[in-house]
Amino acid sequence: MKDVMRFAFILTLTAAVTSGSLAYVNSVTRPRITARQNAEMKEALHYVLQGSEKGIIESVFQNGEIVFYKGYQKPDKRDLIGYAFVASGQGYSSEIQTMVGVNPQGKILRVRILFQQETPGLGTRCEEIRKNESVPWWQRQFQGTDAQSIKVDKDGGAIESITGATITSRAITESIALKTKIVLQKTDQKDN
């Protein structure tokens, strides 16, 4: 019985010490992690809604969650640039998240992939940047296309799929088309 008490005490002590030290490390690193994520998000938003750096980006909520963003050229919400939203779809080995900017007519302005864990050398080429270029070549082909009807070439569309990574290409393309439909429906309702 004495042993049991002693063991319980030692285990509790270890648990307290370990979780205490983790709480400390967490309190040091957490602000940095959140700050980095926010900065990344902001950077992506400014990238897909070009011209919004000097203006303002407004978040549109539904049920407490952000559904999409509205970007304006002027800080007083004039000159709408378009809408931005995160589209996510199941790729080959991960849930791929893409930030998409569309103009009010539903044409894609720019896209940026936020998160993917696809196969290195295959699916990850969706973020590949060619020599002497600054934008991933695969993502650039979305610019100016009609967001609601985009398809990869294997499905009869215009988006050239990545060699050996059709699943990845299709997942991103379809997720963008799907989310655009949802978002444009919402914006139509609002405007009317």
């Binding site: 370990t18 979780s19 967490n26 957490r30």
Partner: peptide, 8 residues
């Protein structure tokens, strides 16, 4: 937010 304790 105690998610940092999830591994342990």
């Amino acid at each position: 937010d105690l998610t940092y304790l999830r591994t342990i």
